[in-house]
């Protein structure tokens, strides 16, 4: 029985800038079904955090309920984690973020957790531009309860049971765009070349970064009639373009690949390079992103890649004008200014 991964790693694997090995970003061995797309997303998160050289202890992973929400156990085993209530990951993430703004917040959710029970929470955390990465591991079904169609299943798509889904799907990317998300992307668990730079850019982005990742459920929803299976995703995937993420520490060399269109500098100084973009596509145009998504959907294709980014909008802390230190770094007098301050506030309200 092997529920333990061997401890040896490839001897040529180098440590990152902080001296951490990639192994330091791994979690326990997955207990998901063999072949689950979610495991690939976990691997992409591990790779991204390792390459970004984020200290593992400065990451908080927060999730709700579902197969997707189990995955934080399988990555970043040395980070903080909170497996919360179904659909309530955004509330917990908001609270944590308000208390300690210095940490990296990775929220992991699924199509059930975000598009059904947690749709309200998803909407509000999006419009507040909370500084976090929100990943939806989207397989179009409720895998943990044996594969019923979820709210993101396309009309006509059929899971293992074989009955085509009659209801209109919720497109979470379109919703996120409409609700004011400042970073929106879509990807596929089977394409790490696209997914890893996307996650790295999303983590570096200051504000609400949303990535919808098509992540096939091998057990219940990888049929030929399903639009969320490996084969369908591969055959119908289109991309807005190719992107590269250049972290702030790395010097930008002028050696661009042919097809280079433009670059976007993020708040922390790191740069997103866009190549071979679809003609006329502008990742800074929210309306165009919504229209393009719609157009591809009508063609029966899945548009992936970076759909929209605005690195300059104020995040939740700036909108609120909160103190710029984590609460734990404040002294007792700042946290508890005394009865005179309370009276001053109260008198203001009279």
């Amino acid at each position: 029985m092997s529920y333990i991964r061997p401890n040896f790693r490839h001897p040529e694997l180098q440590a990152n800038e902080l001296g951490y090995a990639r192994k330091d970003y791994e979690g326990s061995l997955s207990t998901l079904c063999a072949g689950c797309g979610h495991d690939s997303i976990s691997a992409a998160i591990i790779q991204s955090c390792f390459e970004l050289a984020i200290p593992p202890h400065s990451v908080a992973k927060i999730s709700g309920i579902g197969c997707s929400s189990k995955t934080p156990t399988y990555f970043l085993g040395k980070s903080h984690g909170f497996n919360s209530v179904h659909g309530r990951m955004p509330s917990v993430a908001t609270g944590a973020n308000l208390a300690n703004r210095d940490m990296v917040y990775i929220g992991v959710s699924g199509d059930g957790d975000s598009a059904s029970i947690g749709l309200g929470q998803f909407a509000h955390v999006t419009r507040r531009n909370l500084n976090m990465l929100y990943i939806v591991e989207n397989n179009g079904c409720y895998g943990l309860t044996k594969g019923q169609d979820s709210a993101t299943a396309d009309v006509g798509s059929a899971s293992k049971k074989g009955v085509p889904n009659p209801y209109e799907p919720i497109d979470l990317c379109t919703m996120a765009l409409q609700l004011g998300a400042t970073f929106v992307g879509r990807s596929f668990s089977g394409d790490k070349n696209q997914l890893v730079p996307l996650i790295k850019a999303a983590i570096s982005h200051r504000g609400f970064a949303f990535i919808d990742v098509i992540s096939p459920c091998v057990t219940f929803n990888n049929t030929v009639q399903s639009t969320k299976g490996y084969e369908y995703a591969r055959e119908h995937m289109a991309a807005t373009g190719k992107m590269d993420f250049v972290p702030v520490r790395q010097e930008i060399t002028a050696d661009y690949e042919p097809g280079f269109t433009h670059e976007i500098t993020l708040h922390d100084g790191s740069v997103v390079h866009l190549y071979k973009q679809e003609p006329g596509f502008d990742a800074n145009d929210r309306n165009q992103a919504i229209r393009t998504l719609q157009a591809y959907k009508q063609k029966g294709e899945i548009l992936t890649g970076l759909l929209y980014i605005d690195p300059d909008l104020e995040d939740f802390h700036e909108i609120q004008g909160t103190v710029n230190k984590p609460l734990r770094d404040l002294g007792a007098t700042e946290l508890c200014p005394g009865s005179r301050s309370l009276e001053a506030i109260n008198s203001n309200l009279r």
């Binding site: 991964r5 061997p6 401890n7 040896f8 790693r9 490839h10 694997l13 061995l29 997955s30 063999a34 072949g35 689950c36 797309g37 495991d39 690939s40 976990s42 691997a43 668990s189 089977g190 790490k192 096939p216 091998v218 990888n222 490996y230 084969e231 591969r234």
Partner: peptide, 15 residues
């Protein structure tokens, strides 16, 4: 093979 990458992700030595 359905190219799900499960083997790629689990392999401890990235073979």
């Amino acid at each position: 093979c359905i190219e799900c990458d499960a083997c790629v992700d689990i392999c401890p030595t990235d073979c």
